[in-house]
Design a protein around this nucleic acid. Structure first.
Lengths: 186, 186
DNA sequence: TACAAAAGTGCAATGACTTAACTTTTGAAG
DNA sequence: CTTCAAAAGTTAAGTCATTGCACTTTTGTA
C-alpha cells in the first residue's frame, strides 16, 4: 500500500495531460468546431477510444482540472473573515475566480463557442446545491430553505454577467450590493 | 396578395403539427432517449430530412410553440397594473407561466430528461436581453445597465426554483420579496 | 514468476444531423 | 389553361461524437 504515486498513475496522468494539451492547442489554433476528436487523439498519439476513457466528452477536454472548485466555493462561505457577510464572501469569491484565470485567450475560446459556453455553465451550476447547503448552515436556516437556494443560484448565475462586464469589480459590487439588501437579516 | 392562409402554408403547418404530435406521443410513451428521430418521422409519414427542415433539432420537437413567450414576458413588464412594481409584475408572470402549463405529464417528461431540461433552460434564457431592455426602459436606466441585466437574469433563473418547489406561490413570494428589497427605488 | 487489473487498441455500430441532387406540388402570371 | 419558379419533400450518402466488444499490452503485487 505504498502508492503515493505509482508509475502507473503517472503514466495515466501523462496521457491525460497530453490529450488536454493537444486539444487546447488545436482548439485555440483552428476553433473548437473545426477540430475533430480523431485529430486530438492523433496529436496525443492515442486512439479515440482511449481519449474517451480519459474524458467523458469532447467538451470536457477543455475543462481539465475542475475538482476543487466546489470545495473552494463552500470554503469561501464557511471560512470567511468575521466581518464579512455571506454575500460579501460570495462577491469576493466570484471576483477571485473571474480574474486570475488561465488567460483571456482561453476565456475567449469558451465564450465564442456555444457548446463550450453551455458546458461551462453546466459545470459551474453543478455546485449549486452544495453552495446552498453551506449558506443554509451559516445562516441557521433549514437545508432546503428556498431563500438560500435562490441566493446560491443567483450568486453563481452572476458570474457570466460579471465576466462580460468591462469593469468586473464595479459590476460585482453593484449586483451583490442588491443581493445584500435583499438577503440581509436571515 | 390574398394570402391570409394559403393552402400551401396550411399543408406545411399540418406536417409540422403531425411531427410534433407524433413526437410527443412517442416520447411520453417510451421516453425521449428511447425514441429515434427516424421513428418520429415514420410516425408522421415523412422523411428524416423533412423533419429537420421543420425543426432544427430533436429537442425542438418537444417545444413546438415558442414564439410569443418573449412578447408575453416583455408585455408583462410594460403593461403591468399601475400599482405593481416591476418585480411584482415579474413574480406574477412567473407564476402564470409555471401554473397553467400544458399538463404535469409534459413537465415531468422535460424535467426527467437532461437533454430536454437543458434545452428548456436555453430557450428560456434566450429572452434575457429582451427582458433586460424592457426593465431598463421602465426604470429609466440605460439599456445596458448592469442591475437591470441582473434582475432579468435572476427573475428568469428563478423559474426552475419555483417549478421545483412544492408550494409554488409561496416560493415565488419569498424569492421576489427579496429581489424587491434589493432592486427597490431604481 | 505468475496472475489479475488497468490501460490501451481496432473495429463496428448507433444516432443526430448535413449535404447534394432530384421529384412533386402549388401559387401566380401570362 | 399553360408555364414556370419557388417551396416542400425524397433518397442516398456522408460527417461526427460517442459507445460496445473483443483483444493485446503493461504493470503492480502476491
Amino acid at each position: 500500500m505504498t502508492e503515493v504515486t505509482g508509475r502507473r498513475e503517472r503514466k495515466k496522468a501523462q496521457t491525460r495531460q497530453a490529450l488536454a494539451d493537444a486539444a487546447l492547442a488545436l482548439f485555440l489554433e483552428r476553433g473548437y468546431d473545426q477540430v475533430g476528436v480523431k485529430e486530438v487523439a492523433d496529436a496525443a498519439d492515442v486512439s479515440v477510444t482511449t481519449l474517451f476513457k480519459h474524458f467523458p466528452s469532447k467538451e470536457a477536454l477543455v475543462f481539465d482540472q475542475d475538482d476543487d472548485i466546489e470545495t473552494a466555493l463552500v470554503q469561501a462561505v464557511h471560512g470567511r473573515p468575521p466581518a464579512h457577510t455571506i454575500v460579501d464572501a460570495l462577491r469576493e469569491h466570484m471576483l477571485r475566480v473571474s480574474e486570475g484565470g488561465p488567460g483571456e485567450e482561453f476565456i475567449r475560446l469558451i465564450e465564442s463557442t456555444p457548446a463550450l459556453r453551455d458546458y461551462a455553465r453546466r459545470m459551474w451550476m453543478r455546485h449549486e446545491t452544495a453552495l446552498a447547503r453551506a449558506i443554509a448552515q451559516e445562516s441557521g436556516a433549514p437545508e432546503d430553505d428556498i431563500a438560500c437556494a435562490a441566493l446560491a443560484r443567483f450568486a453563481l448565475a452572476s458570474r457570466e454577467l460579471i465576466l462580460a462586464h468591462p469593469h468586473r469589480r464595479r459590476a460585482a459590487e453593484e449586483i451583490f450590493a442588491r443581493l445584500e439588501r435583499g438577503w440581509r437579516t436571515e
